Simulated assay, not measured.
Amino acid sequence: MKIEVKLTTKEEAYIIKNMYPLYLHDLSGHYGLIAGHTPNCHGIFEDSNDYTTLQDQYDAQNIWWEKQNCLYSYLILVDDIPAGFELVATPPYCTPGIDFFVNDFFLMQPFRGNGIAQCAATKVFEMFRGKWELFTNPADKNVIGQKFWHKTVSNYTKGNYEEVLGPTIDGNKLIFRFCNT
């Protein structure tokens, strides 16, 4: 099985945009009926009712391809088939003192459970050197996500990382921080 992580261009953005509603639907299972994790009145997983179509949501995501020197959109491919994505932000789109932030990470269901996600995350970590941060939902509904990031970050850093529960721009989260310089 060939696992590839590829930086996408504006011309390829549609592939990640096609998967994004699946990602948001997936997140809704981890958060339940919390605002922003249920569909709006138009059936779109967004905080605002301003998004009436998926095209509206797609247009809002264009920033990932417009700010190419500080926002990076990676497509995860398995045997040349789109399997997921990882969106990485750099300053000013992350916590002060952090160089790289895993903004979004998603692997579609058929590709889960066989090491692809850990391999893809590690490949992206290797592309950038510095202080990293990522966070995930600390709720019991997200035990699988918590275990995934604990295992992935622990294996990648050989146990040299920080894992804390604390406030973020998205509420109280389980935060992982490490440095790979």
Rank of each mutant, 00 (worst) to 15 (best):
M1D: 08
K2V: 09
I3D: 06
I3F: 07
I3L: 07
E4M: 10
L7M: 05
T8I: 14
T9H: 03
T9F: 02
T9K: 05
K10W: 03
K10Q: 05
A13F: 04
K17G: 08
N18H: 10
M19T: 06
M19C: 09
Y20L: 13
L22K: 12
H25Q: 13
I34R: 06
A35Q: 06
G36Q: 03
T38L: 07
T38E: 09
P39E: 09
C41H: 06
H42P: 02
E46F: 04
E46G: 03
D47R: 10
D47E: 08
D47S: 08
S48K: 01
S48H: 01
N49D: 15
D50R: 12
T52P: 03
T52S: 12
T53G: 11
L54N: 15
D56A: 06
Q57R: 10
Q57L: 14
D59S: 03
Q61K: 00
N62F: 01
W64C: 01
W64K: 05
W65P: 03
W65S: 00
W65A: 01
Q68G: 04
C70W: 02
L71G: 06
Y72K: 09
Y72G: 05
Y72E: 06
L77I: 03
V78R: 14
V78E: 14
V78N: 07
V78W: 12
D79Q: 02
D79T: 03
I81N: 12
P82T: 09
G84L: 12
G84C: 11
G84K: 14
E86F: 07
L87T: 11
V88G: 11
P91W: 03
P91C: 01
P92W: 06
T95E: 09
T95S: 04
P96I: 04
G97D: 00
I98A: 01
I98C: 08
F100E: 00
F101D: 11
F105R: 11
F105S: 10
F106I: 10
L107G: 02
L107E: 05
M108H: 11
Q109D: 12
P110Q: 08
P110E: 10
F111L: 09
G113A: 04
G113F: 04
N114D: 13
G115F: 07
G115I: 07
G115R: 08
G115E: 10
C119V: 13
A121T: 14
T122A: 15
K123M: 15
R129E: 05
E133T: 05
F135I: 01
T136I: 05
N137H: 11
A139S: 15
A139W: 13
A139R: 13
K141D: 14
N142E: 06
I144S: 14
I144C: 11
I144R: 12
G145C: 09
G145H: 10
Q146D: 14
F148A: 13
K151D: 15
T152N: 15
V153Y: 12
Y156R: 04
T157R: 03
T157K: 01
K158G: 02
G159R: 01
N160T: 04
Y161N: 08
L165S: 02
L165N: 03
P167L: 02
K173R: 15
L174W: 08
I175S: 06
F176C: 09
R177T: 06
N180W: 00
N180A: 05
T181D: 04
